[in-house]
Design a protein around this nucleic acid. Sequence first.
DNA 1: AGCCAGGCTACCG
DNA 2: CGGTAGCATGGC
Length: 226
Amino acid sequence: MNKIYKIYKTLYKHYGPQGWWPILGYGYHKQDYTFPRNSDEIFEVCLGSILTQNTTFTSVVKSLNNLYEKNALHVEAIKKMNIDEFKEAIRPSGYYNQKARYILEFISFYKKLNGATPSREALLSIVGIGEETADSILLYGYNQLHFKVDAYTKRLLLELGLIGEKTKYGEIKSMIESSIKEYVKDERELLILYQEFHALIVKHGKEFYSKKPYGAGCFLKNKLFV
DNA sequence: AGCCAGGCTACCG
DNA sequence: CGGTAGCATGGC
């Protein structure tokens, strides 16, 4: 078993399934792997993916709830909304001026899709959508096989000696994807694994990779190298 | 009180 | 190209 896959197995055994992406309409943290998602769910994942940039998800939930209470958790509703009212709604997530712009840019793109699944390159061409946000949207919104790499992933793999300080996003992503594909052939199973794995890394990262020194007490260090 | 959060852009050399 | 200031609120 390669180390990446062993990390997944160990985290899953330790923490159990995380059930990402949580959808407001279903109640947060319900494990729901039903897919394909409907358009409201996809849009909510896109919104959440942008709002959660460098911000805790609990803050994002507040923003989404604000929109939900205004019955504005939909594309058309947000377009019609007063810009200041919209900014006020997403204020808890921070960077609300930037994020308001990003979301509006995304919405004009999203409408043109007309329900189609966007390519990664197309997503990356939108202002405010970088690699992680694009993969977040594809993996959790559109159920596409794109692994989402975040700061915790980098810190963890760096601590375990599997990457270097300057290993790029794309290298980390393809390294993880190819490591997992070796063991999981079924596409649906693979998709769920990608979704769970990233969620598990965040769960683990919050505990052992938030404050320095990173990795203090991380049980993966023993599990992998005994 | 200060550091961190499920990043990205713009601008610098 | 690589490196970094700026963006902003909320939680611990």
